[in-house]
């Protein structure tokens, strides 16, 4: 049952998501059955028109949504293959801390925390000592050209562009095994887009696998090894 070719980090088969709204007695199919694979060191792009259910697929992999059907197999750092559909919640939490990262369009952050802490947090979760994590976070903020005087304050008052860069730094930092990207790059300026491309490539070259939803076909072309179009078939 749980067999996954050695080069795969993640394999999704016939994954479906539907919702039932009790108040209206109404069922909604959010995505048609989808198949996809992610390999270590590669990015699989998930594309298709808006409303086709791309985000639902990503959320179902991360367990923010409960899958309605299908199979999600994941190979962890220890090489064990497990089902993300049936894994207990405590195991999913462990994977979220150590291995599987989810990056959305908006920066979700704890209030009243410095930007540096927000970016370093995924490293704390990975078990990296605070001082080392802080240095690494600083480096990523520099990379994304966030002025030094903003490192110590909360992003609450930042501009949209600044928040987005903090979000990307926090999303790409460290050594997760699998990163799920849900349009964290919407309407990037040219300069930041170039930084993102370089940073993503660097993390891919370290063996991290990614599944990404991107607005911009140029980013797909620059980064993806495989494209899954949710209207059609794999390219």
């Amino acid at each position: 049952m749980n067999d996954l070719p050695l080069d795969l980090l993640l394999r999704v088969r016939q994954l479906r998501k539907s919702f039932f709204l009790h108040e209206r007695g109404l069922g909604i199919d959010s995505s048609r059955p989808v198949d996809l694979e992610v390999r270590a060191g590669e990015l699989t792009a998930l594309t298709g028109p808006s409303g086709v259910g791309k985000s639902s697929v990503v959320k179902a992999i991360y367990r923010t949504y409960l899958p309605s059907g299908g199979e999600i197999l994941y190979r962890d750092t220890a090489g064990r293959v497990e089902s993300l559909v049936t894994a207990p919640e405590s195991r999913i939490l462990e994977l979220r801390r150590r291995e599987i990262r989810y990056v959305t369009q908006f920066l979700h952050f704890l209030p009243r925390r410095s930007t540096l802490d927000i970016v370093a947090e995924p490293l704390w979760q990975e078990g990296i000592p605070a001082a080392e994590a802080e240095a690494e976070a600083r480096a990523w903020l520099h990379r994304f050209k966030l002025p030094e005087n903003l490192h110590g304050v909360s992003p609450a008052t930042f501009s949209g562009g600044e928040k987005q860069r903090v979000n990307l730094a926090r999303g790409l930092i460290g050594s997760p095994r699998l990163i799920l990207l849900d349009e964290p790059t919407a309407s990037l300026d040219k300069h930041t887009a170039a930084i993102v491309i370089e940073a993503v490539r660097e993390q891919l070259s370290r063996g991290i696998g990614m599944l990404g939803i991107f607005h911009d076909p140029e980013l797909v072309a620059a980064l993806a090894t495989t494209e899954i179009c949710m209207n059609g078939e794999s390219i």
Binding site: F19, L21, H22, E23, K59, R63, T64, Y65, L66, I92
Partner: peptide, 20 residues
């Protein structure tokens, strides 16, 4: 469930009402 799941994909009618 996981808190983000309960808030974003509530299953029970009561939870859906609460979140809404």
């Amino acid at each position: 469930g996981l808190t983000d799941q309960v808030l974003q994909d509530p299953q029970h009618a009561y939870t859906q009402q609460l979140v809404a």
